[in-house]
Design a protein around this nucleic acid. Structure first.
Lengths: 195, 195
DNA sequence: TCTTTCTTGTGAAATTTTTCTCAAGTTCAT
DNA sequence: ATGAACTTGAGAAAAATTTCACAAGAAAGA
């Protein structure tokens, strides 16, 4: 689904107004029926004999996905990955604002990264409750991930993205998503060794 | 599949010798039949009435996935994400060694990041061919991703992982994998807005 | 040895996802 | 107008994935 946005924004910046599912499929490297099914899922946006109006479609997809608004995020764990995310320009561009950064290392507390002061993780609840935070990003080492998740839950955060390579346990009203690049390398290793 | 490794390594470090699919399923948050199907796919590793021997299983999985060896990688694009990957300790630990780092920015060339000298991207072919490089990581801005891919193909690299948010075109003997965190944030936004 | 309790591996069933196909709507040249 | 060329939306078919259900093997106590 994210691919559609990527490709459509590209088309938009190239001033292309309309695109048929066949061409869009080519660019996204998927089957065109797939695209038509997906797009038909949230309304009739195509025009028969013509195709899809890029701008309208993009807006509709974004609305459907819930990214036609801003989302407040916080990050726990200011290591290499944490810093990369804090500095990543693409996230705010897509409506995901990292509002605060936390770490429990006294050497990091007080430091500034990409305009964010690093705050002690213990103060997460106190700080995060002042603002309505939607999403928490965990970029700690694996042994600290669960504690970070606990702090987030105490602050009422309902969506957690865990970049640490470990499972975490959360109450049933919290959604967790796991991200681990090593998986991509592993999958590549597998594909290269089974030609 | 990567989850299995994560959980099994955890069990191994806890000295647990045997685990039944039911318990493993719990920890991986998947169905136990699923696990048994997956594990049976590359041989009969379980023992009926007992379960799976953690160490043997782990070794078998790693062999099957092709990660019981080292893989030589290079990276193009020494930005925030590139630096995070270069410094990431987990990758070499799992057998993925980033051997060289390239960038086309004259200010970055010559700089050292986590023990890697940053080299001009134009010298990629010349440099990479000295060593047998298996996997190329693209962490450039999107507009430079295709060029990076071209350099990699010229150096005979058959596996590319593209972290840049754009599609790239490669010859049919090259495998590409796309990685984009914004997708995880988008998917989270979707789940939070459809409770 | 026999019985009870576990737990795997796997065929069958159920479910989900992907692809095929085509009627119906749109555009454009004539 | 009319016909030819396109393209969507959606039902049907096909393929892939996930789950169920249970025979058969293993362990342990009586």
């Amino acid at each position: 689904m994210g691919v559609y946005i990527q490709v459509l924004e590209d088309l938009q910046s190239q001033q292309q107004q309309v695109i048929p599912s066949e061409k869009l499929a080519e660019k996204c490297e998927v089957n065109s029926s797939q695209i038509r099914k997906d797009l038909a899922y949230f309304g009739e946006f195509g025009v028969r004999g013509v195709g899809y109006y890029v701008t309208d479609l993009l807006q509709a997809i974004k609305h459907f996905l819930g990214i036609d608004r801003n989302w407040n995020c916080i990050l726990v764990g200011v290591g290499n990955l944490g810093r990369a995310l804090l500095r990543h320009r693409q996230l705010p561009q897509k409506g995901f604002q990292i509002r605060m950064a936390f770490d429990c290392d006294p050497f990091k507390i007080g430091e500034h990264v990409a305009g964010h002061e690093v705050v002690c993780t213990r103060r997460l609840k106190e700080k995060a409750q002042l603002m309505q935070i939607d999403i928490g990003l965990i970029t700690t080492p694996p042994e600290r991930a669960q504690r970070a998740a606990n702090h987030m839950m105490q602050a009422g955060i309902k969506g957690i993205i865990n970049f640490a390579p470990t499972r975490i346990h959360v109450s049933s009203d919290v959604t967790v998503d796991y991200v681990d690049f090593s998986n991509h390398l592993i999958s590549m290793a597998f594909r290269l060794s089974h030609p």
